[in-house]
Amino acid sequence: MSLLSHHPRRLIIAITGATGVAYGVRLLQILRDLPEIESHLMISDAGVLNLHQELDMRRKDVEALADVVHNVRDVGASIASGSFQSDGMIVAPCSMKTLASVANGLSDNLIARAADVVLKERRRLVLMVRETPFNLAHLRNMTSVTEMGGIIFPPLPGFYHRPQSIEEMIDHTIGRVLDLYAVPHTLTPRWSGLKSET
């Protein structure tokens, strides 16, 4: 018998102050129904404001969706160490402030520190950046994160599957993100090629 205890797969989720908090909430809802994955959540103060503005949700409502909740100011939390094993981290949505902190290794709060740890341990970091249009600082920060091994994933909706609702557009995007972590799902139909003209 192995002396090592079996741990579920772990995903770190952060919700920051960009528009699009519905992506983070939907991601947590999906992970909640997957017992093989343990979710670790952080919400920035600006993220809390957007939860109220965009979804009429309170912090505690969203935190209830996660397996473990961390205070964004607790830089001594378990996820701040490389010894904490995880499959990686998703920032959904990712503000330009958080992007800049990650790109420059500031680690000024637990979100930026956890992202820094994921990068240094060569794990998968996905930043669902939200801003438009981008200025040069945004683009340079995205380049820096990409060069460090992170994935820049703006939540741009696809229309080839002919979504009938905002919810379907969100699910399509979240499904693509989950694909990056090999998490099985049925959120959106798989591409089967273009339909031929009749």
Rank of each mutant, 00 (worst) to 15 (best):
V69H: 02
A64Y: 01
A77F: 03
M89Y: 02
S78V: 08
G76P: 00
A92L: 12
S86C: 12
S83F: 10
N71W: 02
Q85F: 01
S83T: 15
G88L: 00
A80Y: 02
D67G: 14
A80R: 03
V69Q: 07
A92W: 03
G88P: 04
V68T: 14
M89G: 05
S81R: 14
S95W: 04
S81M: 12
I79E: 05
M89C: 10
C94L: 08
G82N: 11
S83W: 01
A80L: 07
D67A: 14
A80K: 03
V91N: 02
A92F: 08
N71C: 06
D74R: 10
S86Q: 05
R73K: 15
V75E: 14
V75F: 02
I90D: 00
I79H: 06
A80Q: 08
S95K: 05
A77E: 06
I90K: 04
R73M: 13
K97I: 09
A66M: 09
S95G: 02
M89E: 01
M96K: 13
S83V: 07
F84R: 01
D74I: 03
S78I: 05
N71D: 15
A80H: 04
A92T: 09
G82V: 11
S86K: 03
S83Y: 10
S95M: 05
A77W: 03
P93G: 13
S78L: 11
A80D: 04
I90E: 03
A64C: 04
V75N: 11
A64M: 07
V75S: 08
V91S: 01
H70K: 03
S78K: 10
A92V: 08
S78M: 12
A80T: 04
G76A: 15
D74K: 08
D87P: 02
G76W: 09
V68D: 09
A92G: 12
F84P: 02
M89T: 03
D67Y: 06
G88H: 02
D67E: 09
G82L: 10
S81V: 09
C94A: 15
P93A: 13
V69G: 07
A64Q: 12
D67T: 13
R73I: 00
L65Q: 11
L65I: 10
V72T: 14
V72L: 02
R73E: 13
V75R: 15
I79D: 01
L65G: 11
V72N: 04
L65A: 07
Q85R: 14
S81L: 11
V68Q: 14
V72W: 00
I90H: 04
